[in-house]
């Protein structure tokens, strides 16, 4: 059974690439275009992993993680930040809101897959 991943990014090309990479490896991927969209979709079914961009309109990645962590269903679901910002500030912010890890953009599909595998197998 494919594990399910919620991929959140406002950039369509980026989403497509994430989806392509993960689907190719057998994951079940649902796309969301921003934090708000992701939050809505997170309620439709429990995902095994949330993969989110930081900079998005309507609701950014940090706010999304904070909101997800506030719901019992996602208290412990792994959440990875996929972001161009890899500064310490960003990392400590990510950690503070409860992110599981981060992956810097631009990323290599193989690396994405490796990190995702590490987290959910």
């Amino acid at each position: 059974m494919g594990k399910s991943v919620l991929a959140v990014d406002d950039s369509k090309s980026m989403r497509q690439m994430v989806v392509f990479t993960l689907k190719g490896a057998g994951y079940d991927v649902v796309e969301a275009v921003d934090g708000q969209d992701a939050l809505n979709k997170s309620k439709t079914k429990p995902f095994n992993l949330v993969l989110t961009d930081q900079n998005m309109p309507n609701m950014d990645g940090l706010s999304l993680i904070r909101a997800l962590r506030g719901s019992p269903q996602y208290k412990q679901t792994p959440i990875l930040m996929l972001t161009t910002e890899s500064s310490d500030t960003m990392k400590s912010q990510g950690k503070a809101v409860g992110a599981t890890g981060w992956l810097v953009k631009p990323f290599d599909p193989a690396k994405l897959l490796m990190v995702v595998k590490k987290v959910i197998g």
């Binding site: 890899s86 990392k91 992110a99 981060w102 810097v104 990323f107």
Partner: peptide, 8 residues
């Protein structure tokens, strides 16, 4: 050089 990812 940087691995470009990490876990908290």
């Amino acid at each position: 050089e940087d691995l470009g990812f990490g876990f908290f």
